[in-house]
Protein backbone atom coordinates (compact mmCIF):
# COMPACT_ATOMS: atom_id res chain seq x y z
CA UNK A 1 0.00 0.00 0.00
CA UNK A 2 2.60 2.43 1.16
CA UNK A 3 4.92 1.30 -1.54
CA UNK A 4 2.29 1.75 -4.20
CA UNK A 5 1.55 5.22 -2.99
CA UNK A 6 5.17 6.27 -3.06
CA UNK A 7 5.45 4.82 -6.60
CA UNK A 8 2.46 6.92 -7.63
CA UNK A 9 3.95 10.00 -6.05
CA UNK A 10 7.29 9.59 -7.75
CA UNK A 11 5.63 9.08 -11.13
CA UNK A 12 3.67 12.30 -10.61
CA UNK A 13 6.79 14.12 -9.56
CA UNK A 14 8.80 12.92 -12.54
CA UNK A 15 6.09 13.79 -15.05
CA UNK A 16 5.62 17.19 -13.45
CA UNK A 17 9.30 17.97 -13.68
CA UNK A 18 9.38 16.60 -17.23
CA UNK A 19 6.65 18.90 -18.44
CA UNK A 20 8.25 21.86 -16.69
CA UNK A 21 11.85 21.48 -17.68
CA UNK A 22 12.19 19.26 -20.78
CA UNK A 23 10.75 21.92 -23.11
CA UNK A 24 13.22 24.44 -21.78
CA UNK A 25 16.11 22.01 -22.05
CA UNK A 26 15.14 21.21 -25.62
CA UNK A 27 14.96 24.91 -26.39
CA UNK A 28 18.45 25.42 -25.02
CA UNK A 29 19.81 22.44 -26.97
CA UNK A 30 18.22 23.55 -30.23
CA UNK A 31 19.63 27.04 -29.81
CA UNK A 32 23.03 25.42 -30.39
CA UNK A 33 21.80 23.66 -33.52
CA UNK A 34 23.76 24.53 -36.67
CA UNK A 35 20.82 23.80 -38.95
CA UNK A 36 18.56 26.59 -40.08
CA UNK A 37 15.55 24.32 -39.71
CA UNK A 38 14.78 23.95 -36.05
CA UNK A 39 13.66 20.31 -35.97
CA UNK A 40 16.61 19.09 -38.04
CA UNK A 41 19.77 18.52 -36.05
CA UNK A 42 22.79 19.86 -37.87
CA UNK A 43 25.47 19.56 -35.20
CA UNK A 44 26.60 21.88 -32.35
CA UNK A 45 27.20 25.53 -33.11
CA UNK A 46 26.99 28.98 -31.59
CA UNK A 47 26.18 30.47 -34.96
CA UNK A 48 22.70 31.74 -34.01
CA UNK A 49 24.09 33.69 -31.12
CA UNK A 50 26.26 35.67 -33.55
CA UNK A 51 23.26 36.20 -35.80
CA UNK A 52 21.32 37.40 -32.79
CA UNK A 53 23.98 39.83 -31.63
CA UNK A 54 24.23 41.31 -35.06
CA UNK A 55 20.53 41.91 -35.64
CA UNK A 56 19.71 45.49 -34.80
CA UNK A 57 15.95 44.96 -34.35
CA UNK A 58 16.54 42.45 -31.53
CA UNK A 59 18.73 44.94 -29.72
CA UNK A 60 16.14 47.66 -30.27
CA UNK A 61 13.41 45.45 -28.84
CA UNK A 62 15.53 44.48 -25.84
CA UNK A 63 16.36 48.08 -25.06
CA UNK A 64 12.77 49.25 -25.55
CA UNK A 65 11.47 46.49 -23.28
CA UNK A 66 14.05 47.23 -20.60
CA UNK A 67 13.39 50.96 -20.76
CA UNK A 68 9.65 50.46 -20.45
CA UNK A 69 10.10 47.90 -17.68
CA UNK A 70 12.38 50.16 -15.64
CA UNK A 71 10.21 53.25 -15.92
CA UNK A 72 7.07 51.21 -15.37
CA UNK A 73 8.44 49.46 -12.28
CA UNK A 74 9.62 52.73 -10.75
CA UNK A 75 6.41 54.67 -11.37
CA UNK A 76 4.18 51.73 -10.44
CA UNK A 77 6.09 51.31 -7.15
CA UNK A 78 5.82 55.00 -6.24
CA UNK A 79 2.16 55.29 -7.17
CA UNK A 80 1.27 51.86 -5.76
CA UNK A 81 2.91 52.73 -2.44
CA UNK A 82 0.99 56.00 -2.26
CA UNK A 83 -2.25 54.24 -3.18
CA UNK A 84 -1.63 51.52 -0.59
CA UNK A 85 -0.92 54.13 2.08
CA UNK A 86 -4.10 55.99 1.17
CA UNK A 87 -6.17 52.83 1.35
CA UNK A 88 -4.76 51.47 4.62
CA UNK A 89 -3.61 54.49 6.63
CA UNK A 90 -5.88 57.38 5.72
CA UNK A 91 -9.03 55.98 7.28
CA UNK A 92 -12.28 56.74 5.52
CA UNK A 93 -12.37 59.35 2.80
CA UNK A 94 -14.86 60.19 0.09
CA UNK A 95 -14.75 57.76 -2.78
CA UNK A 96 -12.57 55.27 -0.91
CA UNK A 97 -14.60 52.28 -2.08
CA UNK A 98 -14.59 53.46 -5.68
CA UNK A 99 -10.85 54.14 -5.48
CA UNK A 100 -10.20 50.66 -4.04
CA UNK A 101 -12.30 49.03 -6.73
CA UNK A 102 -10.57 50.87 -9.55
CA UNK A 103 -7.18 49.98 -8.14
CA UNK A 104 -7.76 46.26 -8.35
CA UNK A 105 -9.88 46.27 -11.53
CA UNK A 106 -6.88 45.43 -13.77
CA UNK A 107 -6.28 42.31 -11.67
CA UNK A 108 -9.62 40.77 -12.55
CA UNK A 109 -10.18 42.29 -15.99
CA UNK A 110 -9.19 40.09 -18.96
CA UNK A 111 -6.04 41.53 -20.52
CA UNK A 112 -7.70 41.94 -23.90
CA UNK A 113 -10.30 44.20 -22.34
CA UNK A 114 -7.69 46.28 -20.54
CA UNK A 115 -5.67 46.55 -23.74
CA UNK A 116 -8.67 47.40 -25.87
CA UNK A 117 -10.00 50.04 -23.48
CA UNK A 118 -6.58 51.67 -23.24
CA UNK A 119 -6.35 51.73 -27.03
CA UNK A 120 -9.75 53.41 -27.26
CA UNK A 121 -8.61 55.85 -24.58
CA UNK A 122 -5.42 56.79 -26.44
CA UNK A 123 -7.20 57.19 -29.77
CA UNK A 124 -9.94 59.40 -28.39
CA UNK A 125 -7.43 61.52 -26.49
CA UNK A 126 -5.41 62.00 -29.62
CA UNK A 127 -8.53 63.33 -31.32
CA UNK A 128 -9.45 65.52 -28.36
CA UNK A 129 -6.14 67.11 -27.40
CA UNK A 130 -3.72 65.79 -29.98
CA UNK A 131 -1.86 63.69 -27.47
CA UNK A 132 -0.35 61.08 -27.61
CA UNK A 133 0.74 62.01 -31.13
CA UNK A 134 1.89 58.51 -31.94
CA UNK A 135 1.62 55.22 -30.14
CA UNK A 136 4.71 53.41 -28.98
CA UNK A 137 7.04 53.84 -26.04
CA UNK A 138 4.86 56.34 -24.15
CA UNK A 139 1.56 54.56 -24.60
CA UNK A 140 3.00 51.14 -23.70
CA UNK A 141 4.63 52.59 -20.60
CA UNK A 142 1.39 54.26 -19.48
CA UNK A 143 -0.56 51.06 -20.14
CA UNK A 144 1.95 48.98 -18.18
CA UNK A 145 1.93 51.37 -15.24
CA UNK A 146 -1.87 51.18 -15.20
CA UNK A 147 -1.98 47.46 -14.67
CA UNK A 148 1.21 46.82 -12.68
CA UNK A 149 0.13 49.56 -10.27
CA UNK A 150 -2.68 47.24 -9.20
CA UNK A 151 -0.27 44.46 -8.26
CA UNK A 152 2.06 46.78 -6.37
CA UNK A 153 -0.88 48.26 -4.47
CA UNK A 154 -2.03 44.81 -3.39
CA UNK A 155 1.45 43.93 -2.11
CA UNK A 156 1.82 47.23 -0.26
CA UNK A 157 -1.67 47.02 1.22
CA UNK A 158 -1.00 43.51 2.51
CA UNK A 159 2.29 44.53 4.04
CA UNK A 160 0.87 47.66 5.65
CA UNK A 161 -2.01 45.71 7.14
CA UNK A 162 0.36 43.03 8.41
CA UNK A 163 2.71 45.59 9.93
CA UNK A 164 0.01 47.09 12.11
CA UNK A 165 0.16 50.66 13.25
CA UNK A 166 1.86 50.48 16.59
CA UNK A 167 5.37 51.35 15.35
CA UNK A 168 4.03 54.44 13.66
CA UNK A 169 2.08 55.37 16.77
CA UNK A 170 5.20 54.86 18.86
CA UNK A 171 7.12 57.23 16.60
CA UNK A 172 4.37 59.85 16.75
CA UNK A 173 4.26 59.40 20.51
CA UNK A 174 7.99 60.14 20.67
CA UNK A 175 7.37 63.44 18.90
CA UNK A 176 7.78 62.61 15.21
CA UNK A 177 5.53 64.64 12.89
CA UNK A 178 3.56 62.68 10.26
CA UNK A 179 6.09 63.20 7.45
CA UNK A 180 8.94 62.12 9.70
CA UNK A 181 6.97 59.02 10.71
CA UNK A 182 6.55 58.20 7.03
CA UNK A 183 10.23 58.55 6.18
CA UNK A 184 11.76 57.16 9.38
CA UNK A 185 9.39 54.29 10.13
CA UNK A 186 6.79 53.47 7.48
CA UNK A 187 8.96 53.55 4.36
CA UNK A 188 11.91 51.62 5.83
CA UNK A 189 9.47 49.00 7.07
CA UNK A 190 7.78 48.95 3.67
CA UNK A 191 11.06 48.67 1.76
CA UNK A 192 10.96 44.88 1.30
CA UNK A 193 7.40 45.15 0.00
CA UNK A 194 8.40 47.96 -2.32
CA UNK A 195 11.31 45.90 -3.66
CA UNK A 196 9.04 42.92 -4.34
CA UNK A 197 6.51 45.27 -5.91
CA UNK A 198 9.20 46.80 -8.12
CA UNK A 199 10.46 43.38 -9.23
CA UNK A 200 6.97 42.15 -9.93
CA UNK A 201 6.10 45.25 -11.95
CA UNK A 202 9.38 44.89 -13.86
CA UNK A 203 8.65 41.25 -14.68
CA UNK A 204 5.03 41.91 -15.61
CA UNK A 205 6.13 44.57 -18.05
CA UNK A 206 8.87 42.47 -19.66
CA UNK A 207 6.43 39.61 -19.93
CA UNK A 208 3.44 41.43 -21.37
CA UNK A 209 2.44 40.69 -24.93
CA UNK A 210 -1.30 41.28 -25.10
CA UNK A 211 -1.65 44.81 -23.74
CA UNK A 212 1.51 46.02 -25.46
CA UNK A 213 0.23 44.68 -28.80
CA UNK A 214 -2.95 46.70 -28.41
CA UNK A 215 -1.41 50.04 -27.56
CA UNK A 216 1.81 49.92 -29.58
CA UNK A 217 2.27 51.75 -32.83
CA UNK A 218 4.34 51.25 -35.95
CA UNK A 219 7.98 50.44 -35.35
CA UNK A 220 7.75 50.09 -31.57
CA UNK A 221 8.36 46.43 -30.84
CA UNK A 222 8.90 45.16 -27.36
CA UNK A 223 10.76 41.89 -26.96
CA UNK A 224 7.62 39.73 -26.58
CA UNK A 225 6.04 41.41 -29.61
CA UNK A 226 9.19 40.80 -31.64
CA UNK A 227 9.48 37.16 -30.61
CA UNK A 228 5.83 36.48 -31.24
CA UNK A 229 5.79 38.13 -34.64
CA UNK A 230 8.84 36.16 -35.75
CA UNK A 231 7.51 32.86 -34.44
CA UNK A 232 4.33 33.37 -36.43
CA UNK A 233 6.36 32.86 -39.55
CA UNK A 234 7.71 29.56 -38.21
CA UNK A 235 10.22 28.43 -35.56
CA UNK A 236 13.56 30.15 -35.86
CA UNK A 237 16.90 29.15 -34.36
CA UNK A 238 17.98 32.72 -33.51
CA UNK A 239 14.84 33.13 -31.40
CA UNK A 240 15.84 29.94 -29.57
CA UNK A 241 19.16 31.58 -28.82
CA UNK A 242 17.39 34.68 -27.53
CA UNK A 243 15.13 32.53 -25.36
CA UNK A 244 18.15 30.70 -23.98
CA UNK A 245 19.72 33.97 -22.94
CA UNK A 246 16.49 35.02 -21.24
CA UNK A 247 16.30 31.70 -19.38
CA UNK A 248 19.87 32.16 -18.21
CA UNK A 249 19.10 35.70 -17.07
CA UNK A 250 16.03 34.60 -15.12
CA UNK A 251 17.92 31.71 -13.54
CA UNK A 252 20.64 34.07 -12.34
CA UNK A 253 18.02 36.45 -10.88
CA UNK A 254 16.24 33.62 -9.07
CA UNK A 255 19.53 32.35 -7.67
CA UNK A 256 20.40 35.80 -6.35
CA UNK A 257 16.96 36.18 -4.78
CA UNK A 258 17.27 32.76 -3.12
CA UNK A 259 20.68 33.67 -1.76
CA UNK A 260 19.39 36.92 -0.30
CA UNK A 261 16.46 35.11 1.29
CA UNK A 262 18.75 32.45 2.70
CA UNK A 263 20.99 35.12 4.22
CA UNK A 264 17.98 36.87 5.73
CA UNK A 265 16.75 33.64 7.27
CA UNK A 266 20.18 32.91 8.69
CA UNK A 267 20.31 36.35 10.26
CA UNK A 268 16.88 35.92 11.84
CA UNK A 269 17.90 32.54 13.24
CA UNK A 270 21.05 34.05 14.68
CA UNK A 271 19.08 36.91 16.26
CA UNK A 272 16.79 34.36 17.85
CA UNK A 273 19.74 32.43 19.20
CA UNK A 274 21.25 35.57 20.68
CA UNK A 275 17.90 36.52 22.23
CA UNK A 276 17.45 33.02 23.64
CA UNK A 277 20.88 33.15 25.22
CA UNK A 278 19.94 36.42 26.93
CA UNK A 279 16.64 35.05 28.24
Amino acid sequence: MNNRRSRFLSIMLISGLTFLYVPMILLVIYSFNYSKLVPVWGGWSTRWYYVLFESQDVWDAVSLSLKIALINATFATILGTLAGLAMVRFGRFRGRTLFGGMLVAPLVMPEVITGLSLLVFFISFKQLIGWPAERGFTTITIAHITFSLAYVTVIIQARLTGMGQSLEEAAADLGAKPFKVLTAITLPRLAPGMVSGWLLAFTLSLDDLVIASFVTGPGANTLPILIFSRIRLGLRPDINALATIIILFVAVCVAIAALIMFRQQRREEMDQQIAAREG
Partner: peptide
Protein backbone atom coordinates in the same frame (compact mmCIF):
# COMPACT_ATOMS: atom_id res chain seq x y z
CA UNK B 1 -3.32 68.43 20.45
CA UNK B 2 -1.88 65.63 18.27
CA UNK B 3 0.13 62.81 19.91
CA UNK B 4 3.46 64.28 18.80
CA UNK B 5 2.82 67.49 20.69
CA UNK B 6 1.52 66.01 23.94
CA UNK B 7 3.64 66.01 27.09
CA UNK B 8 3.07 62.27 27.38
CA UNK B 9 4.97 59.18 26.35
CA UNK B 10 3.66 55.69 26.08
CA UNK B 11 5.10 52.26 26.62
CA UNK B 12 3.17 50.01 24.27
CA UNK B 13 1.74 46.62 25.11
CA UNK B 14 3.94 44.84 22.54
CA UNK B 15 6.74 47.38 23.21
CA UNK B 16 6.64 48.61 19.56
CA UNK B 17 10.42 48.84 19.36
CA UNK B 18 11.70 49.86 15.93
CA UNK B 19 13.16 46.64 14.54
CA UNK B 20 15.38 48.41 12.02
Amino acid sequence: VPPYERPTNMMFQNYALFPH
